Amino acid sequence: MKNRKKRSRILVYIVAYGLVAFMLIPIIWMFWVSFKPINSVVTVVSELLTPPYGVESYIRVQESSMIWRWTINSVFVAIIQTAGTLLFSSLAAFAISRIPFKGKTFVFLLILAGLMVPVEATVVPLFEMIVNLGWVNSYPALILPGIALPLGVLILKQFYDGIPNELMEAAKIDGANMFRIWWSIFLPLSRTSMAALAIFVFVQSWNNFLWPLLVANDQSMMTLPVAIPTFQSSFTTDLTVPMAANVLASIPALIFFLIFQKQIIKGVAMTGIK
């Protein structure tokens, strides 16, 4: 019986490591290609694996583009959008979960209805609003529309519903108001759920393409998903420069994962968000 379990566990590890290796192949290929000389043949394995190697592509990316400006834009937009989504989603979820008011069920159903509306259906009215406000090519245009996230309210509301009422009653006896209860009790207890939601929002904001493409037509305001494809149009016969740009663009996301690795694993394990 023990040998059987041991063989099953070994088989699971083999399959898991095999899947990891399979998913790492494109990333390894991207790094490898980025260090080949410009205009090298990278579609033939024998040519790809033979020297020379260098950093010419990275130099070209920095000299011919605003790669660091685009990176700063992406990082800033993703961080502010994540923080704003956590704040407003948490406040809305707390109000719906714990504060009695008329029409609470209707408000919650209205928020849930937002999950059924495709993003593409809201692009035109949102863009008209941004134009009327004069926010085209600005950070508010990139950040504010993404802060209202119905999924965030749903996730945190379900978590807040499970917190015992006795904690609120004890806090009220001690003289705490509703804001104090939210700040001192509900926020600390929902740390794992907030981390999972933060991961989801950060990745969604980092990879967002359609909305930044519409509201940021100035190069200085572009984010990485919008700016990176410009390399492929400028260097149509070469893959080394676009791959170098992709490597530089992936560094902030990699740093984010390394810093918050434990929170990411806990959040994914608890909520099932991928």
Score class of each variant (00 low, 15 high):
residue 47 E to C: 13
residue 210 L to A: 14
residue 217 N to H: 15
residue 244 A to Q: 04
residue 214 L to E: 04
residue 239 L to G: 09
residue 107 V to M: 06
residue 112 L to D: 00
residue 111 I to L: 06
residue 185 I to P: 09
residue 237 T to G: 09
residue 245 A to P: 13
residue 218 D to M: 09
residue 77 V to E: 02
residue 204 Q to Y: 07
residue 204 Q to R: 02
residue 201 V to T: 11
residue 7 R to H: 12
residue 67 I to E: 07
residue 186 F to Y: 10
residue 42 V to F: 02
residue 80 I to N: 05
residue 65 S to T: 12
residue 47 E to H: 10
residue 162 G to D: 14
residue 48 L to C: 12
residue 231 F to A: 06
residue 32 W to K: 10
residue 178 M to D: 15
residue 99 I to F: 02
residue 85 T to L: 03
residue 162 G to W: 05
residue 35 F to D: 00
residue 83 A to K: 00
residue 33 V to E: 03
residue 83 A to H: 05
residue 99 I to S: 04
residue 217 N to W: 09
residue 234 S to E: 07
residue 161 D to Y: 15
residue 37 P to A: 03
residue 54 G to D: 07
residue 271 T to C: 06
residue 169 E to C: 14
residue 115 L to S: 08
residue 174 D to S: 14
residue 146 G to K: 03
residue 247 V to I: 14
residue 50 T to E: 06
residue 58 Y to A: 12
residue 36 K to N: 12
residue 140 P to C: 13
residue 271 T to F: 01
residue 246 N to K: 03
residue 270 M to H: 13
residue 112 L to K: 05
residue 205 S to M: 04
residue 219 Q to S: 15
residue 49 L to Q: 01
residue 123 V to Y: 01
residue 40 S to N: 13
residue 214 L to S: 06
residue 172 K to D: 07
residue 261 Q to P: 00
residue 199 I to G: 01
residue 39 N to W: 00
residue 140 P to V: 12
residue 20 V to N: 05
residue 56 E to K: 05
residue 80 I to Y: 01
residue 188 P to D: 08
residue 244 A to G: 05
residue 215 V to T: 04
residue 202 F to R: 02
residue 35 F to H: 08
residue 51 P to T: 08
residue 9 R to V: 11
residue 79 I to L: 02
residue 173 I to L: 13
residue 256 F to R: 03
residue 78 A to H: 01
residue 129 M to R: 07
residue 54 G to N: 10
residue 208 N to D: 14
residue 128 E to M: 12
residue 32 W to M: 14
residue 79 I to G: 06
residue 223 T to M: 11
residue 69 R to A: 14
residue 64 S to D: 15
residue 217 N to T: 15
residue 154 L to Y: 14
residue 219 Q to F: 01
residue 96 I to L: 09
residue 266 K to C: 11
residue 110 L to M: 05
residue 16 A to P: 13
residue 184 S to L: 06
residue 151 L to A: 14
residue 158 Q to V: 10
residue 124 V to C: 13
residue 105 T to I: 08
residue 138 S to Q: 09
residue 179 F to H: 09
residue 40 S to Y: 01
residue 152 G to S: 11
residue 97 S to Q: 07
residue 59 I to S: 12
residue 246 N to G: 15
residue 121 A to H: 04
residue 225 P to S: 14
residue 114 G to C: 05
residue 272 G to R: 00
residue 194 M to I: 04
residue 186 F to V: 06
residue 255 I to G: 13
residue 53 Y to R: 12
residue 151 L to I: 13
residue 88 F to V: 09
residue 201 V to W: 00
residue 185 I to W: 00
